[in-house]
């Protein structure tokens, strides 16, 4: 039975639960908006990286650099798009 529960994935799951609980602190404790946002950004991106690497096995084949650059390219572009959009429509309007 134990062979169906690999230690790596269990650790990953536990770690993702911990990250979620840390993120929840933003709601359950009183903190400034900046601190809260930093916590959310850090936990969300670590959480995403965890999914990609531990659960989605992004790095297990010879295509790993292509897969990683695809994801990083996408994240880079979307961050650019979100920041640009906010700059145009909110911050500098």
């Amino acid at each position: 039975m134990a062979k169906f529960f690999p230690i790596g994935q269990i650790m990953g799951f536990v770690f993702s639960l911990i990250l979620t609980v840390i993120a929840m602190l933003v709601y359950f404790t009183d903190m400034s908006f900046t601190t809260g946002m930093i916590i959310l950004l850090v936990t969300a991106f670590i959480q995403a990286g965890l999914q990609f690497m531990v659960f989605m096995h992004a790095g297990e084949t010879e295509d790993k650099w292509a897969i990683y650059s695809n994801i990083i390219y996408g994240i880079g572009l979307i961050v650019l798009t979100i920041l640009g959009t906010l700059l145009i429509l909110i911050w500098d309007m």
Partner: peptide
């Protein structure tokens, strides 16, 4: 299979943009 898995990763890149655009609109 190896083509399909690679292709699906590419599709996930598109999905990142799809949801990212929704987030950009949400924040706006």
């Amino acid at each position: 299979n190896s083509l399909k898995i690679f292709g699906f990763w590419t599709f996930l890149g598109a999905e990142i943009m799809l949801f990212g655009t929704l987030f950009a609109s949400y924040f706006t």
